[in-house]
């Protein structure tokens, strides 16, 4: 059984069909990719999988359990975290606090109105460990909005990691990054691979082909192909839809 499964998702906005018959399955420990041109419905698909939108039809299964239509916070609490294509940080918080607020320990204490929020050594250590992983250890005290673009991208992933996810959705993590940034990001994702199940949306084919175990291609709201990177490269469909020239 796959760790996370989507079956026959349908979604319409008004008279526009955004997702049609989308079925996806992500195996534990693997790195899966979702690929497709802009406006193909990738981000919408993520939004359905993580509870932002409710599908009109279809099912979302987490470890076999039906979680369709649950709220984002309920899904997040199951251990499913996500990052955002357009950055979504706590801008006035320090880099440290961006991570600390997302930690499950903080969440467990969030009803507490009296004690100091981050006085716990274990919590502080975990936050710093995450900052180290995403390469922001030096910047723990800086305000999030003062960070340069690449560092904000890293923090975006750091906040998702802080949720201690079993499954991590990354929405276009390379958006806006130069080749340097991409290389560093690929390195980070390779380090994470194996310890957490990862799903990445990307339209940079090269980036995805070098990292993913399996890839699904979405176009016009439908899954038009899926398979290993090697298999997909040989797929005439993928060739025909011009995906290779999309970046």
């Amino acid at each position: 059984m796959a760790l996370f499964e989507a079956k026959d998702l349908h979604l319409r906005f008004g008279d526009r069909v955004v997702l049609e018959n989308v079925s996806l399955a992500f195996e534990a420990g693997q790195l899966s990719g979702i690929m497709g041109p802009n406006g193909a419905g990738k981000t919408t698909c993520f939004n359905v999988l993580t509870g932002r939108y409710k599908p009109d039809r279809g099912q979302v299964l987490w470890q076999g359990e039906d979680i369709t239509g649950r709220s984002p916070q309920a899904i997040a609490r199951l251990g499913i975290a996500r990052s955002f294509q357009l950055m979504n940080l706590f801008d006035e918080f320090s880099v440290f606090e961006n991570i600390a607020i997302a930690l499950p320990q903080t969440r467990a204490r969030s009803r507490n109105m009296v004690r100091e929020a981050y006085a716990d050594a274990a919590l502080v250590d975990e936050a710093h460990a995450i900052l180290k992983r995403v390469g922001l250890a030096e910047r723990a005290g800086d305000e999030a909005k003062s960070l340069p673009y690449g560092a904000r991208r890293a923090l975006e992933i750091g906040v998702a990691l802080a949720c201690r996810p079993k499954l991590l959705f990354l929405d276009e993590p390379t958006a806006g990054l130069g080749s340097d940034g991409r290389a560093r990001l690929a390195e980070l994702i390779l380090k994470l691979k194996g310890s957490v199940t990862i799903v990445i949306i990307e339209h940079d084919m090269e980036f995805l082909f070098s990292l993913a175990d399996r890839i699904s291609v979405i176009h016009w709201g439908q899954v038009i192909a899926k398979g290993t990177p090697a298999a997909l490269k040989a797929n005439p469909w993928v060739e025909a839809s011009n995906l290779g020239r999309l970046n």
């Binding site: 997040a76 918080f93 499950p104 969030s110 507490n112 009296v114 100091e116």
Partner: peptide
């Protein structure tokens, strides 16, 4: 300065993200 207060402050800055890290 409590965990509750910091979460509220986080919600002020970004409701969406707060929701997606698991806060109601």
């Amino acid at each position: 300065h409590s965990p509750f207060g910091r979460v509220v402050k986080a919600i002020k800055q970004n409701e969406t993200r707060a929701r997606f890290v698991g806060y109601d």
